[in-house]
Design a protein around this nucleic acid. Structure first.
Lengths: 225, 225
DNA sequence: ACCTGAACACCGTTCAAGT
DNA sequence: ACCTGAACACCGTTCAAGT
């Protein structure tokens, strides 16, 4: 890694796209996208806040590259367990995607802004389309189902992990919300009050339920085997 | 609406929560949440940028109130058409919610940040829980289904209408994206390339498909009639 | 009571200047 | 070639001051 001096006065660059992206991914994980600014990046890399503009057009490009980095390895084929069909594998893939997005608050916004032409995202798309094709669905259904799964998975991650880093404990927050619903007027909101104690289960429980309903709905569309 | 002078020197307030919220809702519609700043609000209301702090704790509270305002009337009961069950009505409700959110880019972030304790959101929750209860689903399923529908509807709106106001024409953008997928390596991404021309249908088509799949999946859970 | 003015601590981004 | 320094046009928010 020590550089070969190519010409008089040429110094080894202290930065690179990779080094910057790595730093941003780390900051995404610890503090969320709100904690990633030109100044904090500069501090993390011991460099002037504007130095990154040699390597990236703007913050948006940098965040999108970091977001794609997070998807690394997701599309990898896993050994198919017995009794699990393509839709089960697709479900796991979405769970993996969610885990990656949830552990980097705000990253969902980075992958959401259209296809990034980036390698990991491309691989994920290919894998999902491949799995859906295997189910026997029509091409039209394959594409629409792909979009539905992405919208649900990325969209719910955008809601559940907006950008602020670590929430002040999900459980106590949800408890407070449930208590709040209990104080609603029972005349105006009878069903809400009756079900208040059940509202806001774990974010993970919510997500898995919707995911399962989606997969279940897709199963209805499969051609008879 | 003309004020009663209560004391010498007391003047009619030029602002109110309602006036500010109305202005923000309008700005949300025309330019999205990114166009709503203390300065632009001040300009719209012909008032100093900091004047709104007499009425709202901070920008967050203001945006949440404006977001709730957008949900006005959504939960209203509509005359039940023949042959349409509670899940069909729920589906319409989600479509209405999406329309409201899509026409105010970035508003999804406002309703997403937990229950706002606000009247229109409460009414919407009550109506959705009521409709789901009517289907005969168990209480547990009702609550989880409610969260699933909200996460999908609000989440996809957060993705499809982030905050920038009017995109530069959705159609041409999607055309460009499809063309982009076509240029992908057919060896690495065979399925993607094969389906490229079908990818990125209208945002509305995508959303409706996923919504229908969700409703369909819920139907599987209904007790036999 | 209601709004203004000035100030502060932040942003992203540009561009010329240093080495 | 690579990074720094200074500057610009923005943010949200506070608080004392005006009327």
């Amino acid at each position: 890694m020590t550089q070969v001096p190519t010409a008089a006065g040429a110094r080894a660059p202290r930065l690179s796209r990779e080094r910057i992206v790595a730093a941003v991914v780390e900051m995404l994980e610890s503090g969320g996208v709100d904690a990633v600014t030109t100044r904090t990046i500069g501090e993390a890399l011991q460099v002037h806040p504007t130095a990154l503009y040699r390597y990236f057009r703007d913050m948006d490009e940098l965040i999108r590259e970091a977001a794609d980095h997070i998807l690394e390895g997701l599309a990898e084929e896993t050994p198919r367990a017995a009794g699990r069909d393509a839709l089960d594998v697709l479900s796991d893939l979405c769970l993996g995607l969610r885990t990656a997005l949830m552990s980097h608050p705000g990253a969902a916004g980075g992958v959401a802004s259209g296809p990034s032409r980036m390698p990991h995202e491309r691989a994920l798309t290919e894998r999902m389309l491949q799995l859906l094709t295997r189910t026997g669905l029509s091409d039209e259904d394959v594409v629409l189902a792909y979009h539905a799964m992405i919208e649900y998975t990325v969209g719910s991650a955008a809601i559940d992990a907006p950008g602020k880093g670590t929430d002040p404990d999900e459980d106590s927050l949800h408890r407070a919300w449930r208590a709040d619903y209990l104080t609603a007027s029972p005349d105006d909101f009878p069903v809400t009050v009756r079900l208040a104690s059940r509202l806001y289960p774990t974010q993970d429980t919510q997500f898995r339920y919707g995911l399962q309903v989606l997969i279940d709905g897709l199963r209805n569309k499969l051609p008879a085997p």
